[in-house]
Structures are given as structure tokens and as C-alpha cells.
Write a protein that binds this DNA or RNA. Structure first.
Length: 116
DNA sequence: AGCGTGACAAGGT
DNA sequence: GACCTTGCCACGC
């Protein structure tokens, strides 16, 4: 897969992340057919222009933490946008992937109350 | 071409 | 948990 195709695949994948859910750079790469190229995902999101809006803030590190340094402007912006969609973000930028992760497809209610 | 750097990940100490 | 190493790859020098 060429570079342009890879970029398009990454952007498409990120646009498919549902509001109120998060995923990791690695998972985006894998779903885009670019397993092992998580670093490229971060790079592409960083370059993504405003003309081509993508929900970059729904992408976290594999451990569920925001990738930016705690306290940085980017960190605060990402936490703010996530919280606005109902995602719980701890002060140090942690998100519970079991509750809000994409393709867990399990609502927080189900998690708390149990499905059956 | 080589080397360092980076919005990463996985495995080990 | 904090680090370190290895694998990954695009970029700028």
C-alpha cells in the first residue's frame, strides 16, 4: 500500500470511531490494514488539516492514556473534547478502555449493571 | 546513505 | 508503576 492510500485509510478509519468511544493508534493502524504502523497514525493525525476534519481526539495510546504531555494545550483540548461526548478522563489523561473502547461494543450501563 | 526524532506498541526488568 | 529494548516507519538534516 502506497503512502497516499495509507493516509486515506487511516483518516477513513478514524472517522468511523463512534462519538463517545475511543481507540488506540495501534488499533487504527490495524483496522486500516497497516498493522505495526501505529506511529504513522499519530503523524497523519498531526498533519490532518482543518479542511479535512477527523475526530483525532478519540485516539489514545494502547494503555488508554492521552498521548500528549499532561497539562499541555493539546492534552487539555483532547480531554475537553472527550468529556464533552461523555467520555470519562482522569486528571492524568486516563480513559477506561473496557468502558469506552471501540469494538468493546459494551455500554457503560451494561458494564455496571451487567447484561444478564 | 546514516542518524536522530516522534500524537506508538509489546515485552522484559 | 517507571524504565529500557526492539520493532515499526516517515521526515528532516
Amino acid at each position: 500500500m502506497g503512502n497516499d492510500a495509507a493516509i486515506a485509510a487511516i483518516l477513513d478509519t478514524v472517522r468511523r470511531i463512534p462519538a463517545g468511544r475511543v481507540t488506540s493508534y495501534g488499533e487504527v493502524a490495524a483496522r486500516a490494514g497497516l498493522k505495526g504502523r501505529a506511529r504513522m497514525v499519530g503523524r497523519v493525525l498531526g498533519l490532518a488539516p482543518d479542511d479535512d476534519p477527523v475526530p483525532w481526539f478519540r485516539v489514545l495510546k494502547s494503555d488508554g492514556r492521552i498521548a500528549f504531555p499532561v497539562g499541555s494545550d493539546a492534552f487539555k483540548e483532547q480531554a475537553k473534547r472527550l468529556r464533552k461526548e461523555g467520555v470519562k478522563v482522569s486528571r492524568d489523561g486516563r480513559v477506561d478502555l473496557a468502558a469506552f473502547g471501540w469494538s468493546h461494543e459494551q455500554s457503560l450501563d451494561e458494564l455496571l449493571w451487567g447484561s444478564g
